[in-house]
Design a protein around this nucleic acid. Structure first.
Length: 427
RNA sequence: GGCGGGAUGGCAGAGUGGUUUAAUGCGGCGGUCUUGAAAACCGUUGACGGGGUAACCUGUCCGUAGGUUCGACUCCUACUCCCGCCGCCA
């Protein structure tokens, strides 16, 4: 969330900066500013009465000890207490209003983020590798996978429903190989600590990273509990340090986690209905960083490089785009998307999203650090990115490494993770 | 699922209605002593909000949320988490 003081002192600047984002927050800002004003007036009054009460109560104690009468004070304080109770009640309501409003206001885009309306206005910043010319008509991954007997969408639909997939044999093995390859790369070469978090989290965690309260419909909730299936490892991993003050000497902290991710995909009916692109459950290896504010944009570039490295080693062409203000996610200040080339579908497709949230999540989740043991705590900056979405990486391999005979070559770096298998052929 | 015990500052741990402004110890920070360090001794010590140019004033916080009271760490209610025992179970 944004700093209420910043909003209070620069309301027009905030309005201006949020105006190019999707969604209209004008009304929310008005509600917020009005409630904040009311809160401070109310608070001053309540505090003055409390101060009087504290002094009088002490006096009552003293008199009772001496055995003298305190009836006059007692009577007066009964009234004061009643007033305080009313003021506190009103204050609570005002604070609820403030909280509800401020949690619905998105982050401010960073200055280098291009202004734009939607994904049309995103800007390509780099391109790596050349989509290779194939001597045959490349097939979409679902045809490749089903022909090889390694992907089974029909049975997954029977077992569960639409947007699920059953991986078999070399398919299941390839998915597991990718997970291990990515985790090894990030832990051994890039210095991230491996985490295996809970796959369900409570509503406080979901609020901390920004999924709640606004995006509840995108989540799967476990009936009768306060638990939700995670839509990304970002949620449990960022919340590792919720309500903590980190020793500044331990920063930056780098974590990587493999988890399945669960998304309701409400409102995406009819979109990417075939294949593995849009599933209710998919695997992802996530990268999460906790850093000092002054380093966060440098850290974002390196996070992006760490994610790109996976595709470079797999030798799959991709491009990087920077999201414009209109396409930016709710909690992010700046986001790069990595899009991988898919010859079967004939397009680039998002495979990773790397974002700097600055102190937006840190405020919501109350994650702070101390520069030195004596220093006042301040908010960390949080970042995260996919490193990578595993299902879509498998898609990229099936489509980019498919051969004329229907087999799929195994990328060299994965062969050791596949017992030396060089090619996936139909059984 | 049933029964019992617990949750207090960075940590350990006192405190069962009124100078608690949370004892004491450890740790941290500053100092004395020392060539330097250790030990010893002395001092100091949190978070968040409101007001103020500032010094400063003030409120809240003892798991969380309510309640009783002039006054709550202390009493009442609900909830959460941790520990133990019984049952069930991968």
């Amino acid at each position: 969330m944004l700093d209420i003081k910043l909003i209070r002192e620069n309301p027009e600047m905030i309005r201006e900066k949020l105006s190019s984002r999707s969604g209209n927050v004008e009304r929310l800002l008005d509600t917020l500013l009005e409630a904040d004003e009311k809160r401070r007036r109310n608070l001053a009054e309540a505090e003055q009465l409390k101060c009087q009460r504290n002094i009088a109560s002490e006096e009552i104690g003293r008199r009772k000890k001496q055995g003298s009468s305190a009836d006059d004070l007692l009577k007066e304080m009964k009234e004061t207490s009643e007033k305080i109770k009313n003021l506190d009640g009103a204050l609570r309501e005002i604070e609820d209003t403030i909280k509800a409003a401020i949690l619905l206001i998105p982050n401010i885009p960073q200055d280098t983020v291009p202004t734009g309306k939607n994904e049309q206005d995103n800007v390509e910043v780099k391109k790596w590798g050349n989509p290779c010319e194939m001597a045959f008509e490349p097939k979409p991954h679902w045809d490749v996978g089903e022909a090889l007997g390694i992907l089974d969408f029909e049975r997954a639909a029977k077992i569960t429903g639409a947007r699920f997939c059953l991986y078999k044999g070399a398919g299941a093995r390839l998915e597991r190989a990718l997970i291990n390859f990515m985790l090894d790369l990030h832990t051994k070469k890039h210095g991230y600590q491996e985490i295996l978090p809970p796959f369900m989290v409570n509503s406080a965690s979901m609020t901390g990273t920004g999924q709640l309260p606004k995006f509840e419909e995108d989540l799967f909730k476990c009936n009768g509990t306060d638990y939700y299936l995670i839509p990304t490892a970002e949620v449990p991993v960022t919340n590792i340090h919720r309500d903590e003050i980190i020793d500044g000497r331990n920063l930056p902290l780098y974590y990587t986690a493999y988890t399945p991710c669960f998304r309701a995909e409400a409102g995406s009916y009819g979109k990417d209905t075939r294949g593995l692109i849009r599933q209710h459950q998919f695997n992802k290896v996530e990268l999460v960083k906790f850093v000092k504010p002054e380093n966060s944009y440098d850290e974002l570039e390196r996070l992006l490089e760490n994610a790109e490295e996976v595709l470079k080693l797999l030798e799959i062409p991709y491009r990087v785009i920077v999201l414009c203000t209109g396409d930016l996610g709710f909690s992010a200040s700046k986001t790069y998307d990595i899009e991988v080339w898919l010859p079967g579908l004939g397009c680039y497709k998002e495979i990773s999203s790397c974002s700097n949230f600055e102190d937006y999540q840190a405020r919501r989740a109350n994650i702070r650090f101390r520069e030195t043991p004596e220093a006042k705590p301040s908010f960390v900056h949080t970042l995260n990115g996919s490193g990578l979405a595993v299902g879509r990486t498998l898609v990229a391999i099936l489509e980019n490494y498919q051969q004329a005979d229907g087999s799929v070559a195994v990328p060299e770096v994965l062969q050791n993770y596949m017992d030396g298998m060089k090619s996936i052929t139909s059984a």
